[in-house]
Write a protein that binds this DNA or RNA. Structure first.
Length: 270
DNA sequence: CTAAGGACCTGTCGGC
DNA sequence: TGCCGACAGGTCCTTA
């Protein structure tokens, strides 16, 4: 579910409620997530102050003196701040209870999310291999052109590979390639050099626009305060198979590429 | 090394 | 109405 705009929206919404506050307890009702929630995680975090809430790719990083809590929302996860938490419901797997009332509640029907603790986030095996942040100055046309050189894989799954660039999932890969006029099945290594600047700009623009709308809600996603994202209405191709291209009127096509639904306009994308 | 496919889970929806 | 298969925003791991 959550791609960069949704995770960043969650981070921004939660930060004012949690940064500077202390953890009273971590209540793990269902430890069977993508990886088991470590049994020692609650005792290590109890009593710690949350000094920072940052994001790397689709991971949220809660910094404490005892280590950094890594939270990933997987496909269907959401993390909400509840000032006065009601009784937990289905799929409310973890509560991070703050001193003085309030808690962060993690809900994740499919359990592809994760809660892990590390004292060395920079060298953590899940974070270390990640590529640049797409909204940072590191992500340039030169960088992406290099990262595509000689690759036979289709550009769309290549953009969704976190080692190339982080934060771009299925919705925004489809949307960015539409904006850039690049066919999602084109081999990454067969993209002309001059097309990388517009592609980088398109990726940035899609993510930035989605961020302004609070992300995209298709099913489960809500931000830190429980609000859905409103970018769905701005999608040009995603889940629009058969509907007219907003630019040329041809029907949007759908195909499965790398096991993921892929949407494009054959007239506008080459 | 690269690339492709399976695996992990639950909920929902369309078709018969 | 009920059942079954396909599919859903991610990404690691295995296999070729």
């Amino acid at each position: 579910m959550p791609e960069l705009p949704e995770v960043e929206t969650t981070r921004r919404g939660l930060a004012p409620y949690v940064v500077g506050r202390s953890i009273a307890a971590v209540e793990v009702r269902e430890p069977r997530l993508r990886w088991p929630v470590p049994k020692t995680l609650p005792s290590k975090l109890a009593g710690q102050r949350i000094d920072a809430l940052e994001r790397r790719g689709k991971y949220l990083l809660f910094g404490t003196r005892a280590g950094t809590l890594l939270v990933h929302l997987g496909m269907s996860g959401s993390l909400r701040y509840l000032a006065d938490p009601p009784a937990h419901g289905p799929h409310d797997h973890v509560d991070l209870v703050l001193t003085g009332g309030g808690c962060l509640r993690f809900n994740d029907p499919r359990r592809f999310g994760s809660w892990l603790l590390t004292s060395t986030p920079d060298s953590h095996p899940l974070l270390k291999p990640l590529g640049p942040e797409p909204l940072s100055s590191e992500f340039t046309a030169d960088y992406l052109a290099d990262a595509c050189r000689g690759r036979r894989v289709a550009i769309k799954p290549h953009l969704m590979n976190g080692r190339i660039v982080v934060g771009v999932g299925n919705i925004y890969a489809n949307e960015a390639l539409y904006r850039a006029g690049i066919h999602p099945l084109r081999a990454a290594g067969r993209i002309a050099r001059a097309r990388f600047a517009p592609l980088v700009d398109s990726i940035r623009a899609v993510l930035t626009d989605a961020l302004e709308e609070g992300g995209t809600t298709l099913r489960n996603y809500v931000d830190g305060e429980g609000n859905p994202g409103y970018f769905r209405q701005s999608l040009n191709v995603y889940e629009r198979a058969g509907e007219p291209c907003k630019r040329c009127g041809q029907p949007i096509r759908e195909r499965v590429v790398g096991q993921r639904a892929t949407y494009f306009c054959t007239a506008c994308q080459r």
